[in-house]
Design a binder for these strands. Structure first.
Length: 463
RNA sequence: GUCCCUGUAGCUCAGUUGGAUAGAGCGGCUGCCUUCUAAGCAGCGGGUCGUCGGUUCGAAUCCGACCAGGGAUACCA
């Protein structure tokens, strides 16, 4: 990259200055190259003299002028200039720029790829919602963020693995299974109430209908516990397939679907907890087992095993991260979570540290919430109410490309509003439309050029 | 109460580790139409960077206090 070349040139100049005694023999701060905002300031700029002024006790202008004189000539560079108060500005040759257009054209899709990841194993885990129903509109944000990030890492030379973690054990799953069973009995005309914290969505009724069509009434004839279990398994499979296909439709494809149950099967859960116990991080209180995070600077301790002997979600997460780092040996793990999980960041990092893993290897990206609207009107995302808007509906309404664009167009840590009207609008105030329009125009220019037989050489400066 | 995110042009937002006159798109205003989709092109205007203080050669950026909006504060996940 040209920036690296410029850093090289500047380092040479600094060394010469130090050899000549115009600069003292001190550690030089990192040389950074930036793009100036004004074209008069050249194509690239460096503020090293400003950084050095305090260290060497000379005015930035003097340092800059001395360095400019010592910068060696280079094929890419037209001009090196001093600019007050202490910038060094570089102007690149037009011929070099024209050559870049040709390079980009020749490199094609691979342009910009690099090896800075050096093959390090990175896992990006995202979406990972409980498989209790279809994805809603807000889940699209994590999905797009995760897949885009994984793409970027992959072309930067990392060995990336995209993972979806699903909880197929625990309370939420039981509520799902019981709800589905209740809906199933209702379909058969039997009187059965939904459980108190059950799932009310229409998709549960649809799924119950399908199960009746496929399997008849056989689950109603077995003991309830057995019926719930079997019907739950069917429901779980169906929901996971549903989620998988919706994400695939969005262009998001995973390498691994990781089930929480794996953690218990392979004994990793026990191993991870034993490791914490050995480190003195666990304590018994009120009949439950706690992770004593207060000893490590956290605000409160966290329950790991409830007084009824069942593990909490946090306990599973401990085992899961033990698995990621120790069993599977990822160098770096990136979790993408919604803002509603923000409270878990600190304790997860703490417990990872307690397992003897450098917490810096775990990076958690929190994205803020998404509000959907149609023009002026807010659209609810809530699962409880009937006017739930699913990710599938959004994709089908505005199109996959527009969907990806809008979710990616805001930085993760600012709240966003997704305007369905705007995303569909064929007018300049819709950025997606604008981009598509630019593409159409370019194609039509190229088509006309071909029709008229206009020739243009590769890397023509006039283009 | 405590913790996290946010507050920058009329609107939606960028702004890398502190650096040059704080940027973009849209909207607004002015001028352009016989050959590319006028769904266009050229130009102009637009700001106490939430408020107040501090750090320093220099602050949208770092520190402190405060104000406003959103989120989190379970033996739920």
């Amino acid at each position: 990259m040209l920036k690296d070349k410029l850093v090289e040139l500047l380092s040479e100049a600094v060394q010469k200055a130090q050899a000549a005694g115009t600069l003292p023999d001190i550690a030089i701060p990192e040389i950074t190259i930036e793009r100036p905002q004004k074209p008069e300031h050249g194509d690239y700029a460096c503020n090293l003299p400003l950084k050095l002024t305090r260290l060497v006790g000379k005015s930035p202008a003097v340092i800059a002028k001395e360095l400019v004189a010592l910068i060696p000539a280079a094929a890419e560079i037209e001009k090196v200039a001093f600019a007050p108060p202490g910038f060094i500005n570089f102007t690149v040759k037009n011929s070099w720029l024209a050559q870049q257009a040709e390079n980009i054209y020749q490199t094609g899709d691979k342009f910009g790829n690099n090896e800075s990841g050096r093959g390090k194993k990175v896992q990006v885990e995202f979406v990972s919602i409980n498989p209790t129903g279809p994805l809603h509109a807000g889940h699209g944000r994590g999905a797009i963020l995760g897949s885009a990030l994984a793409n970027v890492l992959a072309v930067s030379g990392y060995a990336v693995q995209k993972e979806y973690y699903f909880n197929d054990a625990g309370n939420q799953m039981n509520a799902f299974k019981n709800s589905l069973f209740a809906r199933y009995l209702q379909q058969l005309g039997m009187n059965k109430e939904l459980p108190e914290n059950g799932y009310h969505g229409n998709y549960m009724i649809e799924m119950a209908k399908d199960i009746v069509a496929a399997h008849g009434d056989k689950f109603s004839k077995m003991p309830e516990a057995e019926g719930v279990k079997q019907i739950g398994e069917i429901g779980l499979k169906r929901v996971i397939e549903l989620i998988k296909s919706e994400l695939a439709q969005l262009g998001v494809v995973y390498d691994e679907w990781f089930s929480e149950q794996n953690l218990y099967k392979d004994g990793q859960y026990k191993t991870a907890l034993a490791l914490l116990k050995k480190g003195g991080h666990l304590a018994e209180k009120d009949g439950a087992t706690w992770f004593v995070s207060t000893a490590l600077g956290e605000d409160k301790d966290n329950v790991v095993i409830r007084s009824d002997g069942t593990p909490t979600y946090f306990a599973a997460d401990i085992a899961y991260h033990y698995n990621k780092f120790i069993e599977r040996g990822f160098d770096k793990v990136i979790n993408i979570w919604g803002a509603d999980h923000q409270g878990h960041v600190s304790r997860l990092k703490t417990v990872v540290g307690a397992l003897g893993i450098d917490p810096a290897r775990l990076q958690i990206i929190i994205h803020q919430m998404v509000a959907m609207r149609r023009g002026g009107e807010l659209v609810r995302i809530s699962k409880r109410t009937g006017d739930l808007i699913t990710l599938k509906e959004v994709m089908e309404e505005v199109g996959v490309d527009a969907c990806r664009f809008f979710f990616l167009a805001r930085s993760a840590n600012s709240q966003m509003e997704f305007d369905l009207e705007l995303a569909k609008k064929q007018a300049p105030d819709n950025p997606v439309y604008y981009i598509q329009y630019a593409h159409a125009r370019i194609c039509s220019i190229l088509r006309l050029a071909k029709e008229k037989g206009i020739e243009f050489p590769d890397g023509d400066e006039l283009l």
